[in-house]
Amino acid sequence: MPNNDRYAYAVGRIRAMETRLLDRGKIDRMVEARSAEEALKVLGESEYGEYLADLGSVHQFEKMLDAELRRIYVELRKISPEPDLINFFAKKFDYHNLKVLIKANKLAEKRDELLVPEVGNIPLAELIRAVGDDDYRNLPSRMRQAAEKLSELLRLDPDPQLVGLLLDRAMYQELEDAVDAQQSSFLKGYFTSLVDLINIKTYLRVRRANRPKDFLQQALLPSGNVDMNKLVQLVEPLEVLVDRLMFSPYAQVVEEGIQMYQKTDTLTRYEKLADDHLIKYAKQAKFVTFGPEPIIGYLLAKENEIKMIRIIMVGKINQLPTEEIKERLRDVYV
C-alpha cells in the first residue's frame, strides 16, 4: 500500500475549498435569473465575487473565468505533493495554445484571444518562439514529433483539420504515458472513460460526415477500453452500437445520447451525458481520505463549474429560454 499520508495537508485544504464550490441552488438561481447581469450577480457571494468589480460589462465574463482557472491551477500546483498530477491536467492547455499558434502562423487564422496564458506547463512565450522559428526542440517529445510532422504536412496541404487530428493524437498519447507514470488507478479509470467517450463521439461524427473507414481509424484515440473499430461497422445502424455497449459503463450515456442525436441531429445531449458520467466518476474521490483522488476531484469539479457558468452566461446573453439552458447544464460535484 503506498503511503498517502503526504497528502494530509493537501486534502485538508481541498475539503475546506470544496465548501466554496457552487451548489445546485446557486446554479439554479443563475439559470432562473431574468438577465445576464442578474445571473452574474448571483456569483457575488462566491469565489468569483472578487472579479466582479473589475468586469466592465457582462460580455467580459470570460475574463473572470480565465482568472479563476488560472488561480485554481496556481493554487493546486502549490498544494499538491505530486506536481505531475496538476501538470497532467494542464497539458491540454499547452496543446490548445500550440493549435491556436500553428493555425495563426501556418494557416493565417489569427485568433490570439483564444490563447490561454499562465495555466499550461509550457510558457506561452516558448510556444510562440517554437512556432515562429519552426523549431520544436525544447518541447516534450510527443508534442515535438507531432508539431514537426504537422509543419511538414501543412506545407503540402494547408488543411486546418490536420492540426487538430495530429495534435490531439499526440496529446492523448502523452497523457497515456503520464497516467502510467502516476500509478493511480483512479486517474487511469478517469482517463479511460474520457477516451472512450471521445471515441464514441468521433465515431458518430465520422459516420455523419460519410468518411471512409481508414479515416475513422486515424481519428480514433488508441488508449481506451472500447475499440470502436472492431465494435461496430460504419454502415451498421446506430441501434447496433447501443446494443453492443449495453453492458459497458457507458450504456446510459450512449442510449439516451444517441436517441436524442437521432431526433435532433446534434450531439449536445450526448456531450452533457458524457460530462455527467465523468463527474459521477470523479465523485468517488469524496470517499477517499488521503491520496491524489480529492485533488483530482476538486480540479475536475472546478473545471466543470467554470464550464457551467459559461453555458449559463452564453445562454443568458443570447436570451435563450431557461429550459434550453437547463438541458445543457452539467451535474454538480458537491
Binding site: A8, A10, G12, A16, M17, T19
Partner: peptide, 17 residues
C-alpha cells in the same frame, strides 16, 4: 502528526476551525 497536517490544511482556508 497526521492530524496536524490535515488540520493545517483546513485552517489555511478557514482559521476559525
Amino acid at each position: 502528526g497526521i492530524v496536524g497536517q490535515t488540520a493545517a490544511g483546513v485552517v489555511t482556508e478557514d482559521p476559525d476551525k
